[in-house]
Design a protein around this nucleic acid. Structure first.
Lengths: 195, 195
DNA sequence: TCAGGGTCTGACCGATCGGTCAGGCATGCT
DNA sequence: AGCATGCCTGACCGATCGGTCAGACCCTGA
């Protein structure tokens, strides 16, 4: 109980996270955050240099994990890259559900801010890995659908427990990823549809 | 060449569509649209009651198609519902790529506007159909991932030709949808309609 | 007792937003 | 000529945004 100190900094951070997930980054004003915390807008700007710095601090842990995933992907190819990318991103997305929800939709604009300059490249590499580094449009499309869809699902299904959501997403990802030229060919038995 | 009439209304609509796809609905001001058209902001508001009306007119065709898809889904169950939902939504998303890109991300907030009050229910039903009306979390998660991912992909892959993107998405959707316990093993009855 | 630093605030700023309004201008009808 | 109508505009409005600033209010250590 050494917490006689109010820890306004943390309260602002938590309130911002909640508001951002509901109304988005742009749609949330510093006034809104201050109101939820019960302080003045000036107090928010005393603890954080500006609105962007607030967002950056909120995202820092998730970005660290994303970056380490990017490192793990380095050098991997084919099905191995796909598996690591799928498992790593599903883990990340489920774990940082709230952060993902914050970025949701405002991704392109938010990436323009200097604090997130490199995220675009990382997510591009992640998509490429999930596509098994195949340039085929089908593979790239499938990878992007998965990345965007998983993000959205994590933000939407707030009531599903973490492990259940993770299992469902991982199963889906393995099923949906475009199979890269695998040594074991699909049995020709499957009735083929149109080419 | 009978176009001596400037057709300012249409030009505003086109400019708004372009701007919305790039900077989003909220991120685009009436001033921005007016500047691109080469008229004043007051002119924009002369042709459209307000900003929301502009968006509504922009979205009307896509919403009509979405509503007709919702009608087609009525009564279908299981794998049949999944197939119709997948093909219908992929068609819609590819055809209205620009409109999808406009809604991207701002979906939740935009839905709150009275002009789109019913869209949320329709998209919920669409998701349910894509899940084969199964309540299993895996099925619902897969359906939402697909809907959100397909939307994002259509907005992102602007350089891929329509039919190629449609084929890739449809293949992916059929592969990714959670297989529902099919009583009838995919009857070859439905002769593919292709126009 | 006083000084000083950390915390917090009300008042204020310039910019921008969506939207209003009175009026200008061209055209066509009577 | 006179008038009505459709199209368009500059000037303006209130609200809200992110951000600044001088100062008030603690608490602590000398």
């Amino acid at each position: 109980m050494a917490r006689a100190v109010p820890d306004t900094h943390g309260e602002i951070l938590a309130a911002a996270a909640r508001q951002f997930t509901v109304t988005g980054y742009r749609g949330t004003s510093l006034q809104d955050i201050a109101r939820e915390v019960g302080c003045s807008k000036a107090t928010v700007l005393y603890h954080f240099a500006n609105k962007e710095a607030l967002l950056a601090e909120l995202m820092a842990p998730a970005i660290d994990v994303l970056r380490s995933l990017d490192d793990q992907l380095d050098g991997l190819t084919g099905a191995a890259a796909q598996e690591v990318a799928a498992r790593g991103f599903v883990d990340l997305a489920v774990r940082f559900r709230q952060e993902i929800a914050v970025l949701r939709g405002e991704f392109p604009e938010l990436l323009c801010q200097p604090a997130f300059a490199h995220i675009q490249q990382i997510s591009d590499r992640l998509r490429d890995a999930l596509a098994g580094h195949s340039a085929r449009p089908g593979a790239q499309v499938a990878a992007l659908v998965l990345l965007a869809g998983i993000s959205e699902a994590c933000a939407a299904f707030v009531d599903i427990p973490d492990d259940e959501l993770r299992a469902a997403l991982l199963t889906l990802a393995r099923r949906a990823v475009e199979p890269v030229d695998a040594p074991l060919p699909l049995p020709p038995t499957t009735e083929d549809k149109d080419s």
